[in-house]
Design a protein around this nucleic acid. Structure first.
Length: 878
RNA sequence: GGGAGCUUAGCUCAGUUGGUUUAGAGCAUCUGCCUUACAAGCAGAGGGUCAUAGGUUCGACUCCUAUAGCUCCCACCA
C-alpha cells in the first residue's frame, strides 16, 4: 500500500463530517445515561465566523466530544441570535443600497425584507462551524426569533410585568442617534478622546459688565441651558446668590443655583446645567425643578428649540457655535482637554443622553439569589477571578432598560388603549379580554388596542437561552428540559459576563428555580501577536475559513488551543496552525511506518520490544491521569500539550524507534498487535482535540463495522495502579542513551558503526532489560560490566555510575573535555557547599521535617560521589 | 477616582499547601545530519540575579509590604 508522505486534510475532513451527520452521531435524546449539556452562545444570525468563535467553539467541541466518549449522553445545542440592533442596521444598510429608505416602509414591509435577508444570509456561521468539526446536534438548531422561542420571551415579559418587576417610565437613557434607539448601560463603551474645554461667560442679569464663566466640553448644548450651578461654599460666587444669568445667543434668563455636587477645583467652579442632555444635569434639574429644553432631534441634529443652527448635526454645531459665541463676546478661552466619551457598542456612534419613555426591568430582586449561587460556588467560574467582577456588578446592579426603538426583535406585549392606559398580555386577544374587564365603560373593540411600537433588548431573549432551547419556559415540566437542564458548562467570553452570564443565572433561578449551568469557562480574547484585539478595522484578523483550508481544521484547532490558557488572552499567530499541521503530519507518518511493516505472526517478541510495550503502557497511564487532572481544572492547553508530548516524544521518538523491526525485516505479531492497541488508544485520547485525523486513522488501524466511529468509542481512563519504578528506570536509561548520542555526535561516530559500552559497575547490578533497550537504540553491540576503567575511552556519569565509550581522543579533544569536566566539578562543589551549609545549620536540621533533611543528606552523598568520580576522570585525562 | 489581575528563557506559558527546583515546557535560535515513517523531519546544544527594593522564615519563584510597568473591569467631574 502506497500512502502519501504528507497528510492532506481536505478530503478526509469533509468525508468524516459527512459521515458523522449521516450516521446521526451528533444527535441526542433523553435516555438513562447521565446528560452532559452545552448550549452554544448563539452567534449573530448574520455574523461570519471570526477567531473568537473559533476559539470558543473549539473548546466547546473538545468538551462535548470528550464527555460523549466518557459515556455521557452529550448534547451540544446550536443556534443563532437575532441580534436586534446589529441585524436591523445591516438590513437598513442593505435597503439603502437598493435605494430604499427605511422610513418609507411600514413595519410589516420592513420585517418582510429583514426576514428575507435572514433566510438568505442567516446561518452562514453555522455552516462554517461544520468545517471546524463542531459536533452540534443540528436537529436542535434554534433561532431566538423562532415562534416558540418568541412565545417564551413574551411569556416571561408578561410574567415579570405581573410580578411588578417591569415598569414603564420617562428616564434619562443612552440614546444611539445612528440606530435611533435607546441602549442599556452595558452597551455603552467609554473611550478617552482628545477634546477641548471651552470657557464661556454668561452675563449676570441686570448688570452691565458682570459675568460668570463656566467650562464645558459641549458648547452646543448652551442653547438648552436652564441654570448655572456653583458650590454653596465657594467664596468666589457667594455674592451671586439669588441672581440670574443670561444664556448667550438665545438670551434666556436662567437661575443661578448652588449645590455641593459641583467640584470647585474643576474649570471655574461654575457649571452650566442642561437637564435634557446630561444625566447629572438631569438629576439636578429634578432637584431644583428646572426647565428641560430638549434641543436635539433623535438623529442628533439640532431642533427648533435650539433657535440657532437648527438642522445642523451636533458635532458640526459644536464647531459652528464657536464663532457665534466669539462674535457675541462670550468666549473666554479654549483649552485642550482629555475626557471620556460613551460610544454605542453596536454602531460606534457617540451616545447622547436623552430623556425618553422606556420600559425597565427591576434588577435588584433578581440579582440577589444570582449573586449567592456564584459566591457559594454552586456555579463555579473558571478562572475564579471573575467572581470578583461578577460580585461587584451584582451588588451595584441598576435597572435594565429593555425597550429598543427598533422593529427587528420581540415586540413588547403591551397594548395601549384610547384612555392612555395600557394592558400587558401574551396576545392581542388576551389583552383585549383584560382591557374590557378592566375598562368596561370604554366599550373597546380589538382595533382600539395598539401594540407598543418598541421591541425588547436582544439580551431579553438570550437570557432564557439555556431554558428556552428545551422549551422549558412554555412547558416547564417537559421531558427534555427536565433531562438536559442545567447545562454542564457554559463556554463564553468574559466581556459578556453582565450582558448574558449574569442574566441567564437570574433567569434560571427565576423560572426554573435552579442554576442554568454548573461551570462557566471564560475564554480569553484572541489578539494578534502585538497584543492588539482582532478587529475588522485593523485588518489583523485572519479569516478562519482560509486558515482551515490551508492547515486543516485539526491543525487550526490545535493552533488555537496551544495558546489558550484559561482566562488569559491569547496572542494568536498563524505559525501555531503550522505547528498543528506539523503534528498532523507527524501522526500521519507514524501511521505510515506502522502500516508499512510486514508481519510475522509466529515471530518471537524481542525483549526490548516487550519492555517498550510495558513501559509505554505505564507512561500512557500516567499521562491519562495528568490529562484528566488538567481537564478537571479546565486547563485545556495543558491537557493538549500532555497529549502532544506523549505522542511526539514518547510514542514516536522512543516507543516506535524501539519496537521498529530491523530494516526490511518483519515485525512479530505480538508486538504488532500491541502497537495497534496503543496507537488506537492515542487516537481516542486525541480525538476531542483533533477529530478528523483521529477518525481517519482509527478506521485505518483496524477493520471497523458499518456506522462505527471513534466518536462513540470509549475514552481510555487512567488506572490507579502506577508503575513508577519502571518509568524511573526507563527515564534513567533514556539519559544514558542521550549521553551516548551526544558522544556519537561530538566524536562523529556514525550511528551505523556499532560500538561497545563499558559500565563501571558489578554485573550483579546489571539491568539486562534496559541494556537491551540501550543496545537497540544506540547500536551498541556489547555492554560490559567492568571493575577497571578502560583505557582510551570517553566517559560520562549517570546516576553516579560511570560509562565508557571506547574512543581514542586527540590531545585537543582531551583539553576540551577537561574544560568541561572542570566546569562540572566546580558546579558540583558549589552545590555540595550549599547543601553542607544547610545541614550545618542547626535550626534547619531541627526545624525542617525529617523527610526534607533526609533529602538534603542524600543530595550531599550524591554530590560527594559525583565529585569523586569527576576527580578521577580529570586525573585520568591528565 | 475605585477594584481585580499580571510581571519567570527571544516569544507564549507551567511551577499545586514555602523544602527532591542554583527553576520546567512548547515554539523560536544555534550545531550536525536528506540515517528508506516524517526536512511539515532526526540527533544534540545554548539560553533565566523568577519586574525592583525591603521584610517574615532554618529555608522564598512561592507568604507580607512598598515601588515601577502592563492588562482588564467599574464609576455621572462638566
Amino acid at each position: 500500500m502506497e500512502i502519501a508522505s504528507k497528510y492532506d486534510p481536505q478530503n478526509i475532513e469533509e468525508k468524516w463530517y459527512q459521515y458523522w451527520i449521516e450516521k446521526h452521531l451528533f444527535e441526542s435524546s433523553p435516555n438513562n445515561k447521565e446528560p452532559f449539556t452545552i448550549v452554544i452562545p448563539p452567534p449573530n444570525v448574520t455574523g461570519v465566523l471570526h477567531m473568537g468563535h473559533m476559539l470558543n467553539n473549539t473548546i466547546q467541541d473538545v468538551l462535548v466530544r470528550r464527555a460523549r466518549m466518557r459515556g455521557y449522553n452529550a448534547v451540544w445545542v446550536p443556534g443563532t441570535d437575532h441580534a436586534s440592533i446589529a441585524t436591523e442596521a445591516k438590513v437598513v444598510a442593505m435597503l439603502k443600497e437598493k435605494g430604499i429608505d427605511k422610513r418609507s416602509l411600514s413595519r410589516e414591509e420592513f420585517l418582510k425584507y429583514a426576514w428575507e435577508w435572514k433566510e438568505k444570509y442567516g446561518g452562514i456561521i453555522l455552516k462554517q462551524l461544520r468545517k471546524l468539526g463542531a459536533s452540534c446536534d443540528w436537529e436542535r438548531t434554534k433561532f431566538t426569533m423562532d415562534p416558540e422561542m418568541s412565545e417564551a420571551v413574551t411569556k416571561v415579559f408578561v410574567d415579570l410585568y405581573n410580578k411588578g418587576k417591569i415598569y414603564r417610565g420617562v428616564r434619562m437613557v443612552n440614546w444611539d442617534p445612528k440606530a435611533l434607539t435607546a441602549v442599556s448601560d452595558e452597551e455603552v463603551i467609554y473611550h478617552e478622546v482628545q477634546s477641548k474645554l471651552y470657557y464661556v461667560r454668561y452675563k449676570i442679569e441686570g448688570t452691565e459688565n458682570e459675568y460668570v464663566t463656566i467650562a464645558t466640553t459641549r458648547p452646543e448644548t448652551i442653547l438648552g441651558d436652564t441654570a448655572i450651578c456653583m458650590h454653596p461654599d465657594d467664596e468666589r460666587y457667594k455674592h451671586l446668590r439669588g441672581k440670574r444669568a443670561i444664556v448667550p445667543l438665545v438670551n434666556r434668563s436662567i437661575p443661578l443655583i448652588f449645590d455641593e455636587y459641583v467640584d470647585r477645583e474643576f474649570g471655574t467652579g461654575a457649571l452650566k446645567i442642561t437637564p435634557a442632555h446630561d444625566i447629572n444635569d438631569y438629576n439636578l434639574g429634578i432637584k431644583y425643578k428646572l426647565d428641560t429644553i430638549n434641543i436635539f432631534n433623535d438623529n442628533g441634529t439640532l431642533n427648533e428649540s435650539a433657535q440657532f443652527l437648527v438642522g445642523v448635526d451636533r458635532f458640526e454645531a459644536r464647531k459652528q457655535i464657536i464663532p457665534l459665541l466669539e462674535a457675541a463676546g462670550n468666549m473666554v478661552k479654549i483649552e485642550d482637554y482629555t475626557n471620556k466619551v460613551g460610544y454605542s457598542e453596536r454602531t460606534n456612534e457617540v451616545i447622547e443622553p436623552k430623556l425618553s419613555l422606556q420600559w425597565f426591568c427591576d434588577m435588584a430582586s433578581l440579582a440577589k439569589p444570582a449573586l449567592d449561587v456564584v459566591m457559594d460556588d454552586e456555579i463555579k467560574f473558571y478562572p475564579e477571578k471573575f467572581k470578583n467582577t461578577y460580585a461587584h456588578w451584582m451588588e451595584n446592579v441598576k435597572d435594565w432598560c429593555i425597550s429598543r426603538q427598533l422593529w427587528w426583535g420581540h415586540r413588547i406585549p403591551a397594548y395601549h388603549l384610547p384612555n392612555r392606559e395600557f394592558v400587558v398580555a401574551e396576545s392581542k386577544e388576551a389583552a383585549y379580554k383584560l382591557a374590557t374587564e378592566k375598562y368596561p365603560e370604554l366599550n373597546l373593540t380589538m382595533d382600539d388596542l395598539k401594540q407598543d411600537e418598541d421591541v425588547m433588548d436582544t439580551w431579553f431573549s438570550s437570557w432564557l437561552w439555556p431554558i428556552s432551547v428545551f422549551d422549558g419556559i412554555r412547558n416547564p415540566d417537559n421531558k427534555e428540559v427536565n433531562y438536559y437542564y442545567p447545562a454542564a458548562v457554559l463556554v463564553t467570553a468574559p466581556d459578556i459576563i453582565f450582558f448574558w452570564v449574569a442574566r441567564m443565572i437570574m433567569a434560571g433561578l427565576e423560572w426554573r428555580k435552579s442554576i442554568p449551568f454548573r461551570h462557566v469557562y471564560f475564554t480569553g480574547t484572541v489578539r494578534d501577536k502585538q497584543g492588539r484585539k482582532m478587529s475588522k478595522q485593523l485588518g489583523n484578523s485572519p479569516d478562519p475559513i482560509m486558515l482551515m483550508d490551508k492547515y486543516g481544521a485539526d491543525g487550526v484547532r490545535l493552533g488555537m488551543l496551544l495558546c489558550s490558557p484559561a482566562g488569559n488572552d491569547l496572542l494568536f499567530d498563524e505559525s501555531l496552525c503550522e505547528q498543528g499541521r506539523n503534528f498532523n503530519n507527524k501522526i500521519w507518518n507514524a501511521f505510515r511506518l506502522v502500516k508499512g511493516w510486514e508481519i510475522d505472526e509466529n515471530g518471537a517478541q524481542p525483549s526490548h520490544a516487550a519492555t517498550a510495550v510495558r513501559w509505554f503502557n505505564a507512561r500512557l497511564n500516567d499521562a491519562l491521569a495528568e490529562i484528566n487532572d488538567h481537564f478537571e481544572k479546565y486547563r485545556l492547553s495543558d491537557a493538549l500539550m500532555a497529549i502532544y508530548k506523549l505522542i511526539w516524544d514518547d510514542f514516536c521518538s522512543w516507543f516506535l524507534e524501539l519496537v521498529k523491526p530491523p530494516f526490511q525485516k518483519p515485525i512479530d505479531g505480538k508486538t504488532y498487535s500491541e502497537i495497534i492497541d496503543i496507537f488506537e488508544k492515542l487516537m481516542l485520547v486525541l480525538h476531542p482535540f483533533m477529530p478528523f485525523i483521529t477518525e481517519e486513522l482509527w478506521h485505518n488501524l483496524r477493520e471497523r463495522g458499518e456506522g462505527e466511529s471513534i466518536m462513540t468509542a470509549t475514552m481510555p481512563e487512567a488506572d490507579s495502579r502506577r508503575e513508577t519504578e519502571l518509568i524511573e528506570r526507563f527515564a534513567n536509561t533514556q539519559k544514558v542513551i542521550e549521553n551516548i548520542r551526544r558522544i556519537r555526535a561530538e566524536k562523529n561516530i556514525p550511528q551505523k558503526n556499532a560500538i561497545s559500552l563499558s559500565v563501571l559497575k558489578s554485573s550483579a547490578d546489571a539491568d539486562s532489560e534496559m541494556d537491551a533497550v540501550i543496545s537497540r537504540l544506540c547500536n551498541v553491540e556489547a555492554i560490559n560490566y567492568v571493575n577497571e576503567k578502560p583505557e582510551s575511552a570517553v566517559s560520562f556519569i549517570e546516576m553516579n555510575t560511570e560509562y565508557f565509550v571506547p574512543f581514542v581522543q586527540s590531545a585537543e579533544e582531551k583539553e576540551k573535555e577537561l574544560v568541561k569536566l572542570n566546569a562540572d566539578l566546580a558546579y558540583a562543589q558549589k552545590f555540595l557547599e550549599s547543601v553542607k551549609r544547610k545541614l550545618a545549620n542547626e535550626k534547619f536540621v531541627n526545624g525542617a521535617p525529617e523527610q526534607v533533611v533526609a533529602i538534603e543528606r542524600k543530595k550531599q552523598a550524591d554530590a560527594e560521589e559525583k565529585i569523586r568520580i569527576l576527580n578521577e576522570q580529570i586525573a585520568r585525562l591528565k
